[in-house]
Structure formats: structure tokens, C-alpha cells
Write a protein that binds this DNA or RNA. Structure first.
Length: 216
DNA sequence: ATCCAGTGGA
DNA sequence: TCCACGGGAT
């Protein structure tokens, strides 16, 4: 089977077994972008707490968050872990928006996908996964997101070596899938759900996995 | 390879 | 207790 049909089968198997994901949780593009930074190597439940605190402090806008000191911002996002580091990263992201896009996330979304990706990657603290998450889930751009779950599932299925570089893993999908943001959105969301519940790092539950038929 | 550094589930 | 977590920089 060619890669295109294979990935389509993965997608339809997960979708039919799990149902649609309705990702990403978040009411505004800015909130989603903030969540993408906060969730780096961190459980989403911790991020949700941090976002609640940002909301309670009315800090979930470019202007309001830009007005906060690094210390105050760190305090608000504390439950997400790495809070001093992430406060710096959020401020570096805000600096990009304020300095180059007049504080408008929508203006960044007007760039073509590759340009916006370069701009995001140039921010200290935004790496490829965070950049792609912002592009796809906050800006609606067709940039496929891959993560540790994607890597784990595909390597356990014998499709790619486990240490494959990020961009090669991303191209594994983008080279053959139609450039469709809503497809990329749902595909990645389904992979994360499978990774969390079945393809766990230790003690994976292969027997009950929605992707069990694809195992080598 | 090591640091960042809180939280919840196994 | 221990480990893993929608990673990234140094």
C-alpha cells in the first residue's frame, strides 16, 4: 500500500473509532497560541489551570499581556510548569507581534504559511512543534503538526526510525496529504488522543488500540 | 546531555 | 514514590 492510502486508512480508522476531536480547546486565536507555548512538555490539564488564571486576570489579549511584567506573567502561568522560562517565551512572542505586526495576530495570519512559519521559528522559545501548532490551530494555516506521540506511533509501527528529525516526520504527512487545514487539524488531534490513551510510553495498550490492525 | 520545574496518574 | 507530559535552548 502506498503512503497516501496508508495515511488515509490511519485517519479513517481513528476517526471512526474515536469520533471528531473539536480541537484546539480555546476561545480565541490568541488564547490558542498562548496554550501552544504553555503546553511545551507539559500536561494539558496544567495548561488549562494557567489559562484560567490568565482569564481571571483579564490577561488573554496581546495588549493586556504585553502590559504585564515578566514576574507577574510568570506568577499567573505558574501551574503550567517551567513558568519563568515560559513567561520569557510568551514575551518574546508578544514582541514579534508588537514589533512586526502592530500587535495583531491576524496580521501574522495574512502572511503565507512558509513566511509565518519562519517568523515564528525565529522567536526564542518557539520551536517547530509550537510553530506548527500556532499556524494550524490558531491561524488556520495548513501546517501539519507532529509531536512525540506521532513519532512513537509511527516508529512502533515500523514506518520510520524513532529518531527521525522533526521536518522529515512532518514531510512524511505533508508530502502525500492534501493541503487541508481541517484535515491536518483533526489528524493530529486524533494522533494525540491515541498516543495518550493507548500508545503510552510505558505499558502501551496495543490490543485495544484503534490502530491495532496496523501493527507490524 | 542537561536544564527548565509543576501536576496528576499509574 | 515515580514517571510522563501537545518541547526547546544551551
Amino acid at each position: 500500500m502506498d503512503r497516501t492510502s496508508l495515511l488515509e486508512s490511519y485517519y479513517s480508522s481513528m476517526l471512526s473509532e474515536l469520533g471528531p476531536s473539536q480541537w484546539w480547546p480555546g476561545e480565541t486565536p490568541f488564547e490558542i497560541a498562548v496554550g501552544a507555548i504553555l503546553t511545551q512538555n507539559t500536561n494539558w490539564k496544567n495548561v488549562a489551570k494557567a489559562i484560567d488564571q490568565l482569564k481571571a486576570a483579564n490577561a488573554l489579549s496581546v495588549d493586556a499581556m504585553s502590559a504585564l511584567s515578566a514576574e507577574r506573567l510568570a506568577e499567573l502561568i505558574q501551574p503550567s510548569g517551567f513558568f519563568r522560562l515560559k513567561a520569557k517565551r510568551l514575551r518574546a512572542f508578544l514582541a514579534l507581534l508588537n514589533d512586526e505586526y502592530d500587535g495583531q495576530l491576524e496580521a501574522l495570519a495574512q502572511e503565507d504559511c512558509a513566511t509565518a512559519r519562519e517568523k515564528l521559528l525565529a522567536v526564542n522559545g518557539i520551536g517547530p512543534e509550537t510553530a506548527d501548532s500556532i499556524l494550524l490551530y490558531a491561524l488556520g494555516q495548513p501546517s501539519f503538526v507532529v509531536d512525540a506521540y506521532t513519532r512513537r506511533i509511527l516508529s512502533r509501527h515500523g514506518l520510520l526510525p524513532e529518531d527521525v528529525p522533526y521536518d522529515e516526520l512532518r514531510d512524511f504527512f505533508m508530502d502525500v496529504l492534501p493541503e487541508d487545514a481541517s484535515l491536518f487539524n483533526e489528524f493530529h488531534a486524533l494522533i494525540v488522543r491515541v498516543g495518550k490513551q493507548w500508545c503510552r510510553k510505558s505499558k502501551p495498550l496495543c490490543d485495544e488500540c484503534p490502530l491495532a490492525t496496523f501493527l507490524p
